[in-house]
Structures are given as structure tokens and as C-alpha cells.
Amino acid sequence: MTIRTVLRLPAGQPENPKMTPPRTVQPTTGRRPVLGALAIIGYMVMIVPILFVVAAAFSGGDSLQFPPESFSLKWFAAAASYKPFMTALVSSAQLAVLATVLALIIGVPAALALQRSTFAGKGWVQGLFLSPLIVPELVVGLALYQQLIAGLGTATFTALLVGHTALLIPYAVRVTGASLALADPFVEEAARGLGARPFKVFTSVTLPLLRPGIVSAALLSFVTSFNNVPLSLLLQGRTFNTLPVSMLDYVQKSYDPMIAAMSTLILAATIVFAFIAERTVGFATIFGGINK
């Protein structure tokens, strides 16, 4: 319930960079003690727990305690060689990639149609494509479990794929739609006027314009799917497990720093991921929906 809820921001014009008001010089934290203090508390709440996770991962002891009795990298080795985690890691990655691809295949044409055409009931259709955002993920997971797995005997992976794809479609639609809205709507007409048939217009003009939006949507979708817990919770099977749920299970059973180590590994990978995101379209744009 984190990134996905970011996109519940009301539909509207993406902030037009040309309309950003000019910045005047404003005093910052130093001269606003109350706001500054609140801000510091806020950052501490967000960051400190994560720091402790990282610190705990380096402990040399056998149980989670702080401060640790010794320092060691052994739990990293343990996490990296723990079969259930590694299998789940691969599974989560496969699921995320596949779901992202499917969501884009469905969402990009939909965004195109919604932006570039008018018809009665368009609002309803748009609402339908965004509807997975307003149903709690746990409910969706349960529904799919009930209807697909218990009801139709579908394979675990298939049910997960359906659920994750549905979850990611609103991203594909919203994010690519936003990048389309930012482009000059007349470039497609210009291409037509110069003699390009509709399909050629799409491949030579529309698709390249969509690329930043598609990349953003892909990154956002991958992360959302990979980290997902509630939807995937009820859809785990003997043959297929996702990483966050495996970690959740592990916490119930054991109180050692294995999770801390695994989390730290994930954190490192995520930092790399964030850098990639920053180099492509811009970190704040993708994950915050903030156009600077």
C-alpha cells in the first residue's frame, strides 16, 4: 500500500513545467525552528529504522540484539545462500518482469486511446482501468485465491500473474498517459500532413514520444510488483513463493539477523536501481509523480 497509493493523486494536468511559479528566496530550516524540528522528527521516523536494520545485519551473534556482541559478515553469506530466499528472489523477479510487460501491453494502447479519442462513457472506461487502485490489495488477493485457485484450480503462478498485472495496469495507463499529455498534440497531425499513414505515425512519432513514460511506468511497475505483500500473500504455493512473503514467513519462525542481512542486500540493490531511475527520467518524476 505504498507506491500504488501515490498514483491515487487526482487526475489532472501533470504539473506543467512552464507554469511553475518563480522561486523567491525563502528562509529555510534555520530560521523556522518549529517546522524544522518537526521535519527532523519526520526524517528520523522514516530513516532510523532502516539504519538499524543495516546495523543489525552486521552482527556476529546468533540472535537479533542490539548492540550486537560482535561484527561479522556471516549473515550476508547465510542470506545469499539460503535456498528459499534465493528461489523466491528469482520468482519475484520473473513475476515482476512478466507482469510489467503484460501491464504495458495492455496499458499503453489504453492510454493512447484514452488520450487521443472521445466517445461516450470514456470516463467510465478510464475509471475501470484505474479501478485496481481503489480496491484493497488483500481483497484482490483473496478474490483471486477464491475464484481462480480454489474455484478453477488455476496454477499459483497464473493467479499471481493475473493479480499483479491488474495491479500494475493503472500505472501503465496513468504514467504513459501523462507523458503523452505533455507532448505537443499536433506532432501526430504534422506527421499525417507530411504523408504518414496512421500506423507509420504511431511507430515513427507516437512511440518515441511515449518512451520516457513507458520507461517510468516499467520501473514503477517492477518495483511495485517485486515488493508486493498483501496481494501475493494468499497466492503463495508450494512451487512458487515471492520474496517479501518468504521473508515475512521467516520472521515468524526465527529471530536471527538473517532478515536484516537480506534486507540490507535488497537495500543495496534498490539504491542501484534508484540511480538507474534517476539517470533515465528522473527519480522524483517516476516515484513521486513530481514534475520538476
Binding site: 505537443d184 499536433f186 506527421a191 504523408g195 512519432v205 518515441p208
Partner: peptide
């Protein structure tokens, strides 16, 4: 349809293809 009329149109917003160079824009048609 417009693509069959061989007319040249200049739009108020220019509508240049942002992902192509000037030369590729001009050479598109």
C-alpha cells in the same frame, strides 16, 4: 485523409518531432 493530400502545414505550435534532429524533421516527408 490528410496524408494523401500533399499539402504542407505549419502549426501554430510548430509541432516539431522532438526526438529527431532538424535535418530528420525536414526530411521526414
Amino acid at each position: 485523409p490528410p496524408e494523401k493530400r500533399n499539402l504542407g502545414m505549419v502549426f501554430q505550435s510548430y509541432a516539431l518531432f522532438p526526438h529527431m534532429s532538424v535535418a530528420d524533421n525536414v526530411g521526414y516527408g
